[in-house]
Design a protein around this nucleic acid. Structure first.
Length: 437
RNA sequence: GUGGGCGUAGCUCAGUUGGUUAGAGCGCCGGAUUGUGAUUCCGGAGGUCGCGGGUUCGACCCCCGUCGCCCACCCCA
């Protein structure tokens, strides 16, 4: 069977399902490198790592707000259960928090590196499966939490080698919009705010007119007056807090929060990397306040990361109210950006020592030597079977080894091992237990 | 979903207007003093040319279908 044979070829395809990836050792080294950077920054910011099952009850994800993320759910019925692969980590995280709500001391700072699944059409930087670094703060209503998260995000970008200015974060608050509609449509029907935001999120893709139509449509969920819709569209054009202030109600809490946030971001040294942009609302229903998304400055790729405040998710899922804010940072788009910028490091096997027995008689001695070295913390490859010295040395060199330990008949008889230093091309003998001779 | 491009050795690709044993580089294996690696030299293995069907005396090449990948648009985070 050949690699390209599809359904016609007979037998199982050797290709992974569309939109999914295999990770060979060289791929896994890069993935691990990336995840180590995420993990290191998270720990440096005092966050604790958590995880949850990749399969959840489907109901955890099936919100009704027209979100694409819900429509693209991988789900299935098994026995009497309706299960789904998680399309994002936040609902699972909420479940974890709610289940121990009485025992947790807030605020809590948790992170996860989770694989998520969405059945969607593929483009560059977008697959049906991806890993996402999630950073979340629960129990802190103030924008100090947002600032800390954005500080961590930029620290991670620094750690990946991206120069300042290569990645920017557009930021807004849904609170501005929510406040301005509070006296109108939201007074009677506060529940339409989420679907309203989901519709607005489409403005860059379908245009202002189409969005206005959707917002005012008599058949739609939102049903704004044309005056309200006009005001909303106009407000989305604001690109500074002062511009936004023209649309806000006097004493706007959302605007005050944003001003405070920018003061804090300035202290982190990143305020100039985070332009205000009133058109950012994000496509998820549960966001309530500040929302943001990171993108490459050239604008050639999809969003790198995104997040926001979701103060009502806990109660939506049956818990007591707890404010929360977080972001997700995917591995796919950042991987493309690192590739474009030539920032992926050369990663080798990092074997340190190779131990080789020339014949069956020397195998036990070789095992003892390898064990001794491994107990010292060295990364040791023990050669298996029979192979020629030429090959052993060549492979050791390619694997990045520093030394090769050789045990042949002569060494065995004298109770020693020949240690070859590959870089210096020198050799000396040691006793089998490591003593010098 | 629409349009375009591409599927030839493990990898990157070449393959003249359809013509007989389908090539290169890298990699892999073996050899050049039986236990000494990056260079060099010599040799070798490995492909039903994505898959299926059709046209033809003859198809990697032309036609149809199909699967997969890439790009753009559409759609959407």
């Amino acid at each position: 069977m050949s690699k390209g044979s599809g359904k016609q070829g007979g037998g199982a395809s050797l290709q992974p399902p569309r939109g999914t990836r295999d990770f060979y050792p060289e791929d896994m080294r890069r993935r691990s490198w990336l995840f180590e950077r995420f993990r290191e920054i998270a720990l440096r910011f005092g966050f604790e790592e958590v995880d949850a099952p990749m399969v959840e009850h489907a109901e955890l994800f099936t919100r009704k707000a027209g979100e694409e993320i819900v429509e693209q759910l991988y789900h299935f019925e098994l026995h009497d259960r309706h299960l789904a692969l998680r399309p994002e980590f936040t609902p699972s995280l909420a479940r974890l928090v709610i289940a121990r709500q009485g025992a947790l001391r807030f605020p809590i700072r948790w992170f996860a590196i989770a694989q998520n699944w969405r059945y969607e059409r593929m483009t560059r930087g977008r697959r049906r499966e991806h890993y996402q670094w999630n950073m979340d703060v629960w129990g802190e209503p103030g924008v100090e939490a947002e600032a800390e998260l954005l500080g961590a995000m930029f620290a991670a970008l620094d750690g990946l080698g991206l120069a300042r200015g290569q990645v920017k974060v557009r930021l807004n608050s849904r609170g501005l919009l929510e406040e301005s509609l509070r006296g109108g449509v939201l007074a009677d029907r506060p529940e339409v705010f989420a679907p309203l935001c989901v519709v607005i999120d489409k403005i860059d893709k379908i245009g202002a007119e189409a969005v206005t139509d959707l917002l005012c449509s008599a058949d739609g969920e939102v049903r704004l007056t044309s005056g309200e819709a006009e005001r909303v569209i106009e407000m989305l054009g604001a690109r500074s807090l002062d511009e936004a202030a023209r649309f806000t109600t006097p004493g706007s809490q959302a605007l005050a929060d944003l001003r405070t946030l920018y003061d804090l971001l300035d202290a982190y040294g990143i305020a100039d990397q985070v332009p205000f942009d009133a058109s950012v609302v994000r496509g998820l229903a549960y966001y309530t306040g500040v929302v943001f998304e990171a993108f490459d400055a050239q604008g050639s790729l999809r969003a790198i990361a995104g997040g926001g405040r979701y103060d009502r998710l806990a109660e939506t899922l049956g818990g007591r109210p707890v404010p929360a804010v977080g972001f997700g940072f995917g591995d796919a788009v950042i991987g493309e950006l690192l590739a474009d910028e030539g920032l992926w490091p050369e990663l080798g096997r990092e074997i340190q020592d190779v131990v080789h027995a020339f014949g069956p008689e020397e195998k036990t001695a070789a095992i003892r030597v390898a064990t001794r070295l491994r107990e010292q913390g060295r990364r040791v490859e023990l050669t298996l079977g029979q192979s020629k010295l030429k090959r052993v040395l060549g492979d050791a060199d390619k694997a990045g080894a520093e030394r090769v330990f050789l045990i042949g008949e002569d060494e065995r008889r004298r109770g020693v091992v020949t240690v070859r230093d590959l870089a210096r091309q020198t050799e000396h003998e040691e006793s089998l237990d490591g003593g010098s001779r």
